[in-house]
Design a protein around this nucleic acid. Sequence first.
DNA 1: TCTGGGGTCCTAGGACCC
DNA 2: TCTGGGGTCCTAGGACCC
Length: 420
Amino acid sequence: MYGLCDCNNFFVSCERLFRPDLVRQPVVVLSNNDGCVIARSNEAKALGIAMGVPFYQIQSLVQRNGVVVFSANHELYGDISRRVMATLRSLVPGTEIYSIDEAFFELDGIDGSPDLFGHRIGRTIRRDTGIPVSIGIAPTKTLAKVASKLAKRYPRLEGCCYMHRPEDVRKVLARFPIHDIWGIGRRYGRMFDTMRITTALEFVGLPEEWVRRRMGIAGVRTWHELQGEACIPFGEMAPRRQQITVSRSFPRELFALDELEPVVAQFAASCAEKLRGEGSLCREVRAFICTNPHREEAPQRQETGLVLRADPTDSTLELVRQARAALRQIYRPGFGYKRAGVLLSDIVPAAECQHSLFASVSDRTRNERLMKTLDRVNRTFGRGTLVVAAQGTEPFRTQQGHLGRRYTTQWDELPVVKAE
DNA sequence: TCTGGGGTCCTAGGACCC
DNA sequence: TCTGGGGTCCTAGGACCC
């Protein structure tokens, strides 16, 4: 059996934690630059606010209905996520963190019925963190996802759905929309629409060979998983990341290389910090820039520049230099750039790295000490305290007109229980 | 006026190897 | 006249996830 623990409307639930006055209110959380809706309370969903809709398109709806709006506050969400995951970990034999608001868990060797066990997990997380969750338990990961959605949908299940008997699974799949199955995205969804296939059970009724031809091996896996044959194993250890990206859209278009360079340098520095956080080194540095694809009348351009290193590194100095070199390869004047980013790849663990024969060992140890100090200074005194000159003096900011407080990670933003 | 960000995996085709 | 066979690696593009 596989369990899935899924936080309900996670970002909204985080914002509500210290604002109980928002509990029955419609609430939405926006993406960077206050661009799109990325989380909605049930009340906001009921108003017809869709996932991913551009904020400007719902402005009047928001005003008419008194929808409470927040800019994304990832520092808060990350901290609350760690608390939820830690609580879950203390209750189950093993966990696999799948995303900021979801984790699979094992049930091997638990006492009593999985159903009671699941309900206890839900109640405990709610009590200890304040975050409501939905629990699904089933013979495969894909079915556990289905079960957690049922737990969310039907209040009488009280937050947990245990689904295991084949005849029960069949009954559920007969009414479950194929669009909502894990692994079926927009593209396959449209394909099934044209075939008049609407339920998961109809999909399961297709011949395996057809599924393989049209959807590849991933589709076949989904097809088996829905029939109770587990194909996606439990993975407790997060595999080392294969790439690290930092990219942002800009509040306005940038035209000049002078404006892009410090921004790209900052993205590279963030990438380097993440890289060191994983204990890794990298050999490939890419920088990319693109114009605004929504402005169809404007000249469009989208390019990626690549710099390869002979010797893998985690040095902010080196990676910033190479990201700027990659940017200069691709930059052309006369375009309004709306988004840029830096991507690190060919990532290797620092401990097992084969260095170049000609690389200097003393340079490497000096870099290690320098980076350790850089990270310590920035951890102690705040991000951006110590930067490479190429990053400039102006930290990159996105538009955040509705930012809430970082209640749990900043001393001066702690919730006030009683004012003096 | 205003449209996010960070990932993974699979597949097909071409270059290249012996 | 007749022109092999079996591989690997890399990349771009497309699908998916949250």
